[in-house]
Amino acid sequence: MAARRTVVLNNRGGVGKSDVTVRLAAALAKRGRRVGILDFDPQGNASRRCGWRYNQGAPQLTVSEAVRADKVGAMAGVWTPVAWDVEYAQRMMLAPAWLELENRMAEAGVQGNHLRLAKALQGADNHLDDLLIDCPPSLFHLTQMALAAGHQALIVTEAEIDSILGAKRVRDFIKEKRHLLHNDELTLTGVVVNNLDPSGKAVEREQLASIRRIFGDLVWEPVIHRRAALTVADNQALPLELTKASGAGPARAAFELLAETYEKRSVDAA
């Protein structure tokens, strides 16, 4: 059976999609889940945060080559271990991305190309329980390929007006366009509010209330607060357990609770 595929996205950049993808995957692995992270953003932020580095002298296979191959199961040759020295990382795999993935955008006009990621994943994620797909901040070809391959979508937003507008565009796109992606079963499973100032600024409280009004029960708990430990762990490509920066404990706890919400709210894999 295929992994439960969750597409992590927003139509605005800088909201922390890659961070939520990586840290939620880690929290699920701690719970004994076998988790894949598929980096589908040419920036490769999720890949780097998992300790992956592109070797120009001996180029590794990435998601770009799997999609370009246009073959069933092509992603099977891309998986690589997450390079973290913690026990639960043994249950995590990465399908990395590099700048070359941007070239797949030029193929958007080829009929049926939005199904290439689904084709590449067919039979190639059966060894996983969950697959989190980190998308670029757009609703164009790469994101459409991810949505065509996914079972559910998870929006990440900040309590800030442009991020909220981007989240609304994602919600409306899924509702109105999923049939054009040949994925009528795609669902919007939730909205994660990320990077909230723990001091409780009035403007962010107002925007958080707005998110709850707009998305209602789709808003997941807990809200993820801004923590120095997250920035340090991201910069050093480390799991939260291996950083001593301020707020590491609360950050770990928040994502562990978020993993509980994920398991309660998620649809079963097809």
Rank of each mutant, 00 (worst) to 15 (best):
M105R: 15
E107N: 13
A108M: 09
G109H: 04
G109L: 07
V110T: 13
Q111H: 10
Q111L: 13
N113Y: 10
H114G: 01
H114A: 13
H114P: 00
H114Q: 12
L115H: 12
L115D: 09
L115V: 05
L115Q: 14
L117Y: 08
L117R: 08
A118H: 12
A120I: 02
Q122C: 09
D125A: 09
N126M: 04
D129N: 10
D129H: 10
L131N: 06
I133V: 14
D134Y: 02
D134L: 02
C135W: 00
P136D: 13
P136Y: 04
P137Q: 07
S138G: 12
S138T: 15
F140R: 14
F140E: 15
H141K: 02
H141T: 01
H141G: 01
H141M: 04
T143P: 00
T143V: 05
T143R: 01
T143Y: 00
Q144W: 03
Q144N: 11
M145E: 10
M145A: 11
M145G: 08
M145S: 11
A146V: 07
A148H: 08
H151V: 01
H151S: 09
Q152C: 07
L154V: 00
L154H: 03
I155W: 05
T157L: 12
A159N: 02
E160S: 14
I161Q: 12
D162K: 12
D162C: 04
I164H: 07
I164F: 06
G166D: 06
G166I: 02
A167G: 10
K168N: 08
V170D: 01
V170S: 04
V170K: 02
V170F: 04
R171V: 07
R171Q: 15
D172S: 14
D172H: 14
D172Q: 13
I174D: 02
I174F: 03
K175E: 15
K175G: 13
E176G: 06
H179E: 15
H179D: 14
L180A: 13
L180S: 12
L181C: 06
L181E: 06
N183D: 04
D184P: 11
E185Y: 05
E185F: 05
E185S: 15
L186C: 01
L186W: 02
T187D: 10
T187S: 11
L188C: 02
L188Y: 00
T189V: 08
G190C: 05
V191N: 04
V191Y: 05
V191C: 03
V191D: 07
V193Y: 06
N194H: 10
N195G: 12
N195S: 14
L196Q: 09
D197H: 12
D197M: 07
P198I: 03
P198E: 04
S199C: 08
G200T: 06
V203C: 10
V203R: 14
V203L: 14
E204W: 07
E206G: 11
Q207L: 10
S210H: 11
S210A: 13
R212P: 00
R213C: 05
R213E: 15
I214W: 08
G216F: 03
D217C: 00
